[in-house]
Design a protein around this nucleic acid. Structure first.
Length: 717
RNA sequence: GGCGUGGUAGCUCAGCCGGUUAGAGCGCAGGAUUCAUAAUCCUGAGGUCGAGGGUUCAAGUCCCUCCCACGCUACCA
């Protein structure tokens, strides 16, 4: 493709279990919105799609906590999202939701097609099952004590205290969060998508931009961290991934698939299909064609996301789309990094965030200012930080002093010197160049200068460099200020009226161009600028393209001499210290500090564990053994494979002590072994027991050594 | 632990394929100016380019090691 005919732009589907914060906005919604608006100003055909992601275990869990149905929870956030987006002028063409019946249908069809093509592998695995509730438990439904740090509220997929990722079977004393009962392991069947089968074409597509022998896109236009992340996945070897779950809230696995009862699509398969279903819904409502957006090679699909989503949008979803066969693949995935807040990570659970819906309520007249500041600090290539003092500085110096004041200045001069009418311009009269007070210039070269500056902005947007483009816009305003400063039309008019007229006309031209360029970032401000100049409201229908053509042709100005200009109006108001102080205090009042689970150092005292019955203890079969053989396990830097003599038998045991003990050190050592522990595979090697270790203050492990006189197989009790 | 991205003036960041005294904006200091929302314009001070090695006539810019931040991922039974 390489030269797209139209653009299908998506922004990550927000997950309906919490409100939106500024990080979400800066991460993908704002850049997507800016991109879409800019492309439309250039007359391109664009469709902008998004919607609420409403399935998954976390939503059921959250709903249960609040004592409401998942439906009610999802409805609440869907509503809030829509209000929030429209409150900050994120202008989706269609905002859908994955709980909608049409989406279910589309997702099921998608799955069924892959199933029929034989793209899945069926596999049975053991998973925790809640006998009381009668359902299988997703990882997050299982809670227990973290084997790493002893935190008693760890989830089956991760401990929120120490951050280690877990599998539910690793938890000590696992408990179902649904019923509080102890879950049992049970076999369940799932459909897996073998990503490894797609590795070679994925690599070519990502690294060279080549798909099916054709140049699909230019990889150098993709961000470094996006490609890097993908390469890291590819190099690490792709694996099969389960595409289904045992859940009761989500998209059903199609009934045509045998054994589908009770199975739902994995949310990460379900959600991106939402982009497709949303497009279909949009098309259905206005009798448009959705296929050209998803099936025409000349459509550029662009996913705006945060960096945590890269693998899904660059590897898994494209692989699914490709396997399906009917769809185009993303043209670019401009993922942003993360936005921090006042020195700390934004955290929904800790309440360390600036909520967008609250901002809208508290500062309803500062929406453009928020969009501006977030654009200015957008984490395009690395994490960045939102600071209220930064917000104040940016608004006051960039918007009030530079941009706002310049526009006000020009409009004011037009009224003061020329009775509020656009003055004529003279191509022959010499004026001082805006670029330097020592250079003479003329109309043509000044117009072309302006054109060049604006064109630079254009190119930056095309390259997804929204910060640079914004800088370029501010530079245009600064250039405008220089033009006025160097020529001083308020003085010049006394000696050379024609020159003064030309300078002010040029100033108005700057204002007009700024009005257009600023629109994607600050649509409200752009509307005010248009109104000042008495121009039609921006309809995002090629206005910029037209303006560029006129400027480049030098045949006429964008403004008609003699036409009226409205009286100056303030575009921006300074932010006072008190305003941001209020916001800072609000942030400090958040539950954040108190609740923040501190990262535990290994030296931390181990908390006492609950009392157990004697029988609980006696169920353990502890034996004395001798290490006969020890060796490293390939690809594992913490694991050793041990062969231990337990008297009556030899066992293979995997121990995570490679960093403290070398294999040689262990051979011949007497150890205490838990002999009746259920075997488990670690790094592909089965471990038939566990060697007891004591942990010292630094977290290092030491063998628990039985007395030398005990023989192998002796019981420990 | 592995991988990825980043670590450049007080702050926010540019610096592509290595090449003269390392740049911009904000902030700060001095000056000019008064048409404008005490705005603008000019000038200036400020950096051993995360640390340490190496390659080269020449290195923020390439290579190695290490440290820090963030993300992804994984095997401490």
């Amino acid at each position: 493709m390489v030269n797209p005919k139209r653009y299908l732009v998506t922004a990550a589907l927000p997950y309906a279990n919490g409100p939106l914060h500024i990080g979400h906005l800066a991460g993908c919604y704002l850049p997507a919105d800016i991109y879409v608006r800019f492309r439309r100003l250039e007359g391109e055909e664009v469709l902008f799609i998004c919607g609420s992601d409403e399935h998954g275990a976390a939503i059921t869990l959250r709903a249960m906590k609040e004592g409401i149905s998942p439906r009610a929870l999802v409805d609440r956030y869907h509503q809030l999202f829509q209000e929030t987006f429209s409150g900050v002028d994120i202008g989706f063409d269609y905002y859908f939701r994955t709980s909608h019946e049409l989406h279910h249908q589309v997702a099921r069809d998608f799955f069924l097609k892959l199933y029929k093509k034989g793209e899945f592998v069926e596999k049975s695995t053991e998973q925790f099952y809640d006998e009381k509730a009668g359902i299988f438990l997703a990882d997050r439904y299982v809670k227990g004590t973290c084997p790493e740090c002893g935190y008693p509220e760890a989830y089956g997929d991760q401990c929120e205290k120490c951050g280690i990722s877990l599998s539910p079977t690793e938890l000590i004393d696992p408990v179902s969060t649904l019923t509080g009962t102890r879950p049992v392991l049970k076999t369940t069947k799932h459909w897996f998508f073998p990503l490894q089968k797609h590795e070679s074409w994925l690599r070519k597509w990502i690294e060279e931009g080549v798909l099916g022998g054709q140049q699909h896109h230019w990889p150098e236009q993709w961000r470094a961290h996006v490609i890097g992340q993908c390469r890291s996945w590819l190099d690490g070897g792709l694996r099969e991934r389960a595409m289904t779950r045992d859940l009761d809230w989500g998209v059903d696995v199609p009934e045509e698939v045998p054994g589908s009862a009770g199975k739902k699509l994995y949310v990460w398969m379900d959600a991106p299909i939402g982009y497709i279903s949303a497009t279909q819904k949009w098309a259905e409502e206005r009798g448009a064609d959705w296929k050209k957006w998803w099936q025409d090679e000349e459509t550029a699909l662009i996913h705006f996301i945060g960096k945590d989503n890269i693998v899904f949008h660059c590897i898994i979803f494209p692989a699914l789309l490709h396997a399906h066969g009917d769809y185009i693949l993303p043209y670019n995935v401009p993922a942003n990094q993360f936005l921090n807040l006042e020195g700390d990570k934004i955290s929904t659970s800790r309440g360390w965030a600036v909520w967008v819906h609250e901002f809208i309520q508290e500062m309803p007249d500062r929406i453009d200012e928020l969009r501006f500041y977030l654009s200015k600090i957008m984490p395009e290539h690395k994490d960045s930080e939102f600071q209220w003092s930064g917000f104040m500085e940016a608004v006051n110096s960039d918007l009030v002093n530079n941009l706002g004041n310049f526009i006000h200045r020009v409009i004011h001069l037009t009224h003061r010197l020329f009775g509020g009418k656009v003055p004529p311009y003279d191509e022959e009269v010499a004026i001082t160049a805006s670029r330097s007070p020592d250079e003479l210039s003329f109309w043509d070269s000044e117009v072309l200068d302006l054109f060049d500056l604006a064109d630079e902005v254009r190119q930056q947007i095309h390259a997804f460099e929204f910060r640079k483009a914004l800088q370029g816009i501010l530079e245009i305003a600064a250039r405008g200020n220089q033009l006025l400063q160097f020529n001083a039309p308020w003085e010049l008019i006394k000696k050379n009226r024609v020159a003064a007229e030309t300078v002010v006309h040029l100033g108005l031209l700057y204002v007009d161009v700024l009005g257009l360029l600023v629109h994607p970032y600050m649509p409200r401000t752009a509307a005010k600028i248009r109104a000042l100049l008495n121009k039609d409201a921006i309809r995002e229908a090629g206005e910029l393209k037209e303006a560029f053509e006129i400027l480049a042709s030098l045949e006429r100005s964008l403004l008609v001499p003699g036409s009226a200009v409205n009286p100056p109006e303030r575009l921006f108001r300074k932010v006072e210290e008190a305003e941001i102080q209020h916001q800072r205090e609000k942030l400090q009042r958040s539950p954040s500090k108190a609740d923040k689970p501190e990262k535990v150092k290994p030296s931390k005292a181990v908390e006492p564990m609950p009392t157990i019955e004697f029988e609980d203890f006696s169920r353990m079969d502890l034996r004395v053994g001798t290490v006969l053989h020890a060796e490293r396990i390939q690809g594992a830097d913490k694991l050793l494979r041990l062969e231990v003599d337990l008297g009556s038998e030899q066992r293979q045991i995997v121990a995570g002590v490679a960093q403290q003990y070398s294999p040689e050190e262990l051979i011949g050592k007497k150890v205490v072994v838990v002999a009746n522990l259920k075997p488990k595979k670690l790094r592909g090697v089965e471990s038939q027991g566990m060697v007891l270790m004591a942990e010292d203050r630094a977290g290092r492990l030491h063998l628990v050594a039985p007395p030398a006189e005990c023989e192998n197989g002796a019981r420990v009790r």
